[in-house]
Design a binder for these strands. Structure first.
Lengths: 337, 337
DNA sequence: CTGTTAGCGCATTCAT
DNA sequence: ATGAATGCGCTAACAG
């Protein structure tokens, strides 16, 4: 009972040097066919398996990537993580997980622990309120590359992959216009968010293409709480022009807005039509699914981010160029439309 | 440029032995206050941080637990993993992730890799078709404890936490009886599943309590595909007695069943009432949410399983007793009921 | 209270 | 083609 088989053990039994065994196991060219066979045979017989922790230690590499995100139970992130895990595994990397619960201090702590665990790299979607990025910048001193995805910090010299909401919004509004809607409201998110600005741009662009006038009062922002959304709805429904369609910031907002509309005795898809941004699963099971949704490709974002990170890990020290991929969001019609 | 600070470095600068420094850093009692201060001061100054990989290696412990489950994007599992991660983190453990995608060979591979990464323990919910458990049993030889949760293998000597569906079913059927329903159908899952048997028991028990006669033809099983469910519905609706309520195997089945009922021009909650088992999020957003749902506590299952595992890790070699916790499922009324 | 020594398992450099 | 020696960073057993 002396624990798992080690190289030393094999060496002893075969009267060889540890180094010889090590090389034989690695199919090193300078090892005699004869001994190599012997070694590998015995290794199999004794169920030899290299002690990864020793290798990690010695090689200063763990084949592990850390992933930090706000909340696993949000459908968007669980899809993203799925993409990450699949890609990482394909390249024989493991994935270490941590959720910030949208709390900056927790985020810092997790990053710290992951650094200590010597992850080779980090994939992160930052917490809602993270304003200080020092915990990420300090990683540079440790040569731990970071690729951000979806929720990216407002920094220039970073790697990231995100999804541009403008294209999807453009398509969404265009669709509504095609269908004859002329007074289209938008419940947007906080104005400082890049994603909000992109939505606004897309909206404007759609009008421009048709040479229609842009009415800024049709875009109201919500703090994304239920109350905020209801306030926004109140404002939109009170607009002097009759709003017949609404682009909601996301599926959650959409649901709250729909509820409000129902309370006002509006008939969905008749008096008023909703378009949203997909982040709820199973929209087919929803009471009033949005007429159409802007897809944000969480799985693909995770995939891409991982690929970039792996590339960074393969080509170390390439601190010069920053990878930033922006996927275009895309409008998807609800099933049966 | 000589990499991160090490203990050796500190020792040299202070003319101390490495061991002294190590002890000082750990607040070992037998170290002079004086030197301890010195050491800790210099450590801070040089930004000393222990190299965890070295420690892992040396201590044969990684403070990492592996978690293997079928599919992250299933709401049930993402909730469970949330509970796992939270609990693990609280105890300074990290979590290594792997999804089997319900594929046995992938499951085996993941377990293998995790073993190589020297995780301290494993938390697993097995793949749908896993029939051979050798990859789990071999872990015993490596002293890697495993705690199963939710989807547990049909083995005796294992640790697990699962949720007993009987209690919830009992409550569900009782509720329906209280409300005057007398002909209650049940769409059950494959009969060999423990969970299916538990549902049947709960159903029968509810009738017994009220001294009502059990009619086996009111329980039909579905293979859980949409078609299977529709067939089951067809059968139930054709029953000689008029079925006024149905207990569906889960939310997915429930949705398919509701759809079928609608096609037959039945009015939900009037002509026919549905009760289900919660595994969809946001049931409040569903078109026809079940009247009531049996809660399976994914977060708590994850939490409990983790606690057991941590306990196992704390008390090594306790291979005698097997922990198996069974939570009771519980009926929860739909919001607004 | 502190120093010395050894060793965890492996890859690797330098000999031979 | 093989062996011997070294070190990665840390802890711990054993001296003093």
């Amino acid at each position: 009972m002396k624990g798992p088989t080690t190289i030393k053990e094999i060496a002893k039994r075969l009267n060889l040097a540890k180094s010889t065994v090590s090389r034989a196991l690695h199919d090193h060219p300078s090892i005699g066919l004869r001994t190599r066979m012997q070694v590998q045979a015995l290794a199999k017989e004794l169920h030899y398996e290299p002690n990864q922790t020793a290798i990690f230690f010695q090689q200063k590499k763990t084949f592990t990537i850390g992933i930090v995100l706000p909340e696993l139970s949000e459908a968007f992130f669980s899809a993203a993580i799925s993409g990450i895990e699949d890609t990482a595994n394909k390249h024989n990397y493991m994935v270490l997980l941590g959720q910030s619960h949208d709390d900056e201090s927790r985020e810092k702590k997790i990053v710290e622990i992951m650094k200590n665990h010597r992850v080779d790299g980090l994939l992160v979607s930052i917490a809602k309120n993270t304003a200080d990025y020092s915990h990420f910048e300090m990683l540079k001193h440790y040569d731990i590359p970071v690729v951000f995805f979806d929720r990216i910090p407002n920094l220039t010299d970073i790697h990231y992959v995100a999804c541009n909401m403008q294209s999807g919004t453009l398509q969404a509004v265009s669709l509504l216009l095609e269908q004859g809607h002329r007074v289209i409201g938008m419940i947007n998110g906080p104005e400082k968010l890049i994603a909000s600005q992109q939505r606004t741009s897309g909206y404007q662009q759609a009008l421009q293409k048709r040479r229609l006038k842009f009415d800024a009062s049709l875009i109201v922002s919500s703090d994304l709480t239920k109350e905020g959304t209801r306030a926004a709805m109140r404002q939109l429904l009170a607009h002097k022009r009759k709003v017949t369609a609404i682009v909601a910031f996301n599926d959650y907002v959409s649901q709250d807005a729909v509820q409000y509309a129902l309370e006002q005795h509006l008939e969905i898809n008749k008096d008023i039509t909703f378009v949203s941004y997909a982040n709820l699963p199973l929209s087919s099971y929803m009471a009033y699914p949005p007429f159409a949704s802007v897809e944000q490709y969480p799985y693909q974002q995770g995939q891409k981010a991982t690929e970039i990170l792996l590339e960074l890990l393969a080509a170390p020290g390439k601190t010069d160029t920053f990878h930033n991929i922006t996927l275009d969001s895309r409008l998807v019609l609800a099933p049966g439309r």
